[in-house]
Write a protein that binds this DNA or RNA. Structure first.
Lengths: 345, 345
DNA sequence: CTGTTAGCGCATTCAT
DNA sequence: ATGAATGCGCTAACAG
């Protein structure tokens, strides 16, 4: 083992091994038409120099198919939400005979996202992009437009671009009004990081419904731990809270943990509402606002496929409805109680 | 819009638009040094002919970095298990400055998997492969070896290859013995598809501990619905069952649903044990066998990175321990009950 | 602003 | 079995 980096080519290997480049190419491709002696020599040379063939060159020379590649940028591991979104996305793109490359981006750091996007564009590594829960600057949009790289947005309203969204303001209000209607007098919101516009919108919805003076705690990450901590914090500062709207199911689970630990009865003492309706939430009985995750994935895949196939296609933006799914962490509407119906999706 | 397929090149576009290839290249790259007139003409030509530039050629000519690409083949959407595995995998590979491409493979269909693998090899689209929960034939191994494409196996013991595994036989026995020790006299197993060796092993473990004559139901897919159905089936045929070992947490959740629906008390009437310790299982209080998912992901990423960086590196296989996490779906060991301790991970 | 000319790194004929 | 030559489709200097 030896020399590092500095793009080596098969010429270097050929020289080092004292053979022609064709021979190097042969061992590279596992051809049988090479004496085991020279093969060993070549492999030795490759190993010594630390050679790694250039993928692009190989593919160009080999002349394989030029399958379209779609990049999806999303905070994949930040929540099961994205898992549910990318599933149909992957399936549809597979059927479309296009490659899907998932790029996990960190919501909190805008910079990393931008560098990644830059890389994708610079390296021309894909012919279409799906942005999930994130916007891009005007400059970026212009750049992509200029380069003819189509893109669609999921869960984010980017003016002028094909988007699939939900009305998060309405969603926040929906959850809040439900809690109110079911008897909570002092509702509070446990929100997600305000770097996400969805969370800013849910906050607005909450305030529209509950008024501007109700407690709001912002978790800077979507985890149970964060939800639990936020809840403890909330209860300490506002002990009278009797209804908690959570901007994410996972936060709600953390909230439930703290509530249980502190001996508060749900929904008798305090009601809880989540957001997303992620898998298992029905099992937990969490009242929540259901997002059309499958639609997000399917629509984005189909749209980007169409745009890549035939540039110039017009893809109209769509707004999907949000639905409140009432389960057992909220009391029924004041008049007649009628919980646990067809809650189990 | 018109002509289809048949690899077009910028020469075709240049001809059609009556310009030189450099100009075509310019509009392709969004250069400003093109009169809007010719630009329009070129774009028109590209659109008419349905031209899509060759990615490999662009990258080769542009001379970007030749970043190593790792392919991970796994039944990504079959269970949250893989979500937990791929998370650290993605993070580590990102830090290693390597690209990770996740390929979702269908456990049930061996053929699709093989075609995909073939494609990856033929197209030389990656310099390293991670196989999760799946084996590959001798021929494939030889092929990869011959081409010098390193690979590692996760959750699957492939002789001669670097693997990270757990002892599923032991795991199955562990869960079963616990149920037995806690007083179940008639245990049953609800297993996953036998196409997965892990499930065959867990079956063996179950039978080692419970004897060969206890009921076994095989779900052919890992979903709550399948678990619920399997449980209903089990109870119909073996009403006296008082302990259910599930080969997957998600199946266990389905089992719990059915049990609740049928009014059986857990763990009083019947005990339930899962397998994996997926996210939220602690919240549900499910006793389960914890798998080292994070280790799976981290080890595989680090190993494949090392193998790609310096071919010939020796990566020893490792076997990780499996741990029984007792929670509230099983009764404590017969002598002194002592549930709910530091169960919440 | 636009066309001509060289390569990019490798796979592949062909000869030998 | 092995080497020399040709081209994959495109970008990037250069000339005009």
């Amino acid at each position: 083992m030896a020399a590092m980096s500095a793009e080596l080519t098969i010429y270097d290997i050929a020289t080092r091994a004292g053979v022609g480049i064709a021979t190097v190419s042969r061992v590279l491709n596992g051809s049988a038409r090479v004496s085991s002696a020279t093969r060993a020599a070549v492999q030795q040379a490759m190993h010594d120099l630390g050679f790694r063939p250039n993928r692009a060159a190989r593919r160009l020379a080999a002349g394989g198919p030029n399958r379209p590649r779609i990049a999806a940028l999303l905070p994949l591991f930040s929540s099961d939400f994205y898992f549910s979104v990318s599933r149909p996305m992957a399936q549809i793109l597979l059927a479309e005979d296009m490659d899907l490359v998932l790029f996990d981006i960190d919501i909190t750091g805008d910079e990393a996202k931008d560098r990644l996007l830059d890389r994708i564009i610079q390296e021309r590594s894909c012919e279409g992009v799906i942005f999930c829960s994130m916007g891009i600057g005007q400059d970026r949009q212009a750049q992509l437009l200029n380069l003819g790289i189509p893109f669609v947005c999921v869960d984010y309203h980017l003016p002028g671009a094909p988007c699939i969204t939900v009305d998060n303001v309405h969603g926040g209000a929906l959850a809040t009004r439900h809690v109110l209607a079911c008897g909570s007098a002092r509702p509070a919101l446990i929100n997600g990081p305000l770097t996400g516009i969805a969370f800013r919108d849910r906050l607005r919805g909450f305030q529209e419904a509950a008024g501007p003076d109700q407690p709001v705690i912002t978790a800077d990450i979507l985890t149970r731990e964060a939800g639990a901590a936020a809840c403890a914090n909330l209860l300490r500062r506002f002990p009278a809270t009797d209804g908690i709207v959570c901007a994410s199911d996972i936060l709600a689970v953390g909230v439930l943990e703290t509530l249980t630990k502190q001996g508060r009865q749900v929904p008798q003492d305090i009601q809880v509402v989540g957001f997303d309706d992620q898998p298992l939430m029905d099992f937990l009985g969490l009242t929540t606002v259901r997002q059309p995750m499958a639609d997000f994935g399917a629509w984005s895949a189909r749209s980007i496929a169409a745009l890549v196939r035939t540039p110039g296609t017009t893809v109209p933006s769509v707004e999907q409805p949000l639905a409140l799914i009432t389960r057992t962490t909220t009391r029924g509407p004041m008049p007649g109680e009628k919980l646990r119906k067809k809650n189990r999706r």
